Amino acid sequence: MNTHLSGTPQTPFEHEIAERLVDVLQLEIAPDEIDPVAPLFVEGLGLDSIDALEVALMVSRAYGVTLSSDDPNSREIFSSLRALASHVTVMRPAG
């Protein structure tokens, strides 16, 4: 398991998503440096609404899961790497 500097371990799937986030958003940090429980927006990674669109597109292409801005749970889904990975795991089509 990968461990962020805070000591919170990433699951293998969280690490996979972290790698994709770093790639698609061209972040200046290593995937291992993303704390899975830290906020993705404002504090934490400091992502913004444009980044959210990029993340939603990446998740749709990579995992077949549609993330919609009008989803009442979108704030929770995007709250952290762990929340995003959990949502994708639950909503991902089988196969």
Rank of each mutant, 00 (worst) to 15 (best):
S69I: 08
D71A: 04
V55I: 10
E54G: 00
F13H: 12
D23I: 08
Y63V: 14
L47H: 08
D32S: 13
I77M: 05
R20T: 11
S6M: 03
L21P: 00
D35A: 15
H4W: 15
R75Q: 09
P72R: 13
S80N: 09
N2T: 02
L81N: 11
A30F: 01
L53R: 10
H15R: 11
P36V: 04
L47S: 04
L67Q: 01
N73T: 03
S49K: 02
Q26I: 01
T3Y: 10
L67V: 06
P12H: 10
V88G: 01
R92W: 07
V55D: 01
Q26N: 11
E16P: 01
A52M: 00
S60P: 02
F13I: 00
L53I: 11
H4C: 06
L5H: 14
N2Y: 13
S86C: 10
S80E: 04
A52D: 05
D23E: 09
E19G: 01
I29G: 03
S80H: 08
V37R: 15
A94M: 13
L5D: 12
D71W: 08
P12R: 14
N2F: 07
F13Y: 08
L40R: 06
P9W: 12
L25P: 04
R82D: 02
V88H: 09
L81M: 11
L47Q: 14
